[in-house]
Simulated assay, not measured.
Amino acid sequence: MIGQIIEKERINEFKIIPAEVDKSAVLQDKLKSALRLGNEFKSKTTIAFQTTDGPKRVETTVWSLTENYLQIKGGVLIPLKSVIEIDY
């Protein structure tokens, strides 16, 4: 999987930018599955996203999903257009 792994509490230390390729439409099914895993099974998902410091990766529970963002614990929002990869 792509990117340096970081703690979810450190996400706000990085400036999240759009990925080279917007995969948000392609990843919709995986995003919905990650949301269901988090809400129903309290299962974690690994999310890789683009920052100005290069790709970063976090293992966390997806709490909610909107048209443009996924939300994780602590109200942290990750823009879908910044997501590079999702794995669970």
Score class of each variant (00 low, 15 high):
residue 16 I to P: 10
residue 51 T to K: 06
residue 73 K to A: 08
residue 41 F to S: 08
residue 81 K to N: 15
residue 56 K to S: 04
residue 40 E to V: 06
residue 18 P to T: 09
residue 38 G to M: 10
residue 46 T to V: 14
residue 43 S to T: 12
residue 30 K to S: 12
residue 86 I to S: 02
residue 54 G to N: 03
residue 19 A to L: 08
residue 82 S to R: 00
residue 28 Q to G: 00
residue 2 I to G: 07
residue 48 A to I: 03
residue 40 E to Q: 08
residue 84 I to W: 02
residue 12 N to W: 02
residue 44 K to I: 09
residue 51 T to R: 04
residue 19 A to C: 14
residue 5 I to M: 12
residue 49 F to N: 05
residue 48 A to Q: 06
residue 38 G to W: 08
residue 19 A to Q: 05
residue 43 S to V: 06
residue 21 V to K: 15
residue 58 V to S: 02
residue 20 E to H: 13
residue 80 L to Q: 13
residue 2 I to A: 09
residue 76 V to S: 02
residue 38 G to L: 10
residue 62 V to R: 03
residue 4 Q to N: 03
residue 67 E to S: 15
residue 27 L to G: 10
residue 42 K to V: 00
residue 28 Q to C: 05
residue 6 I to G: 03
residue 22 D to F: 07
residue 45 T to V: 12
residue 18 P to E: 05
residue 52 T to W: 00
residue 24 S to V: 04
residue 73 K to D: 07
residue 6 I to Y: 01
residue 75 G to V: 06
residue 1 M to K: 08
residue 16 I to K: 11
residue 85 E to D: 14
residue 63 W to T: 13
residue 28 Q to Y: 02
residue 32 K to Q: 13
residue 63 W to P: 01
residue 87 D to R: 11
residue 70 L to E: 00
residue 33 S to K: 14
residue 50 Q to F: 05
residue 42 K to D: 05
residue 51 T to C: 07
residue 11 I to L: 05
residue 60 T to G: 04
residue 58 V to F: 05
residue 49 F to H: 01
residue 41 F to W: 10
residue 44 K to Q: 11
residue 2 I to T: 13
residue 42 K to R: 13
residue 3 G to V: 02
residue 13 E to Y: 12
residue 20 E to S: 15
residue 41 F to C: 07
residue 67 E to N: 15
residue 64 S to Y: 11
residue 8 K to R: 07
residue 49 F to G: 01
residue 51 T to W: 01
residue 4 Q to P: 00
residue 30 K to M: 11
residue 18 P to F: 13
residue 55 P to H: 03
residue 77 L to S: 09
residue 83 V to M: 02
residue 20 E to V: 11
residue 38 G to V: 11
residue 39 N to M: 09
residue 82 S to H: 01
residue 53 D to Y: 04
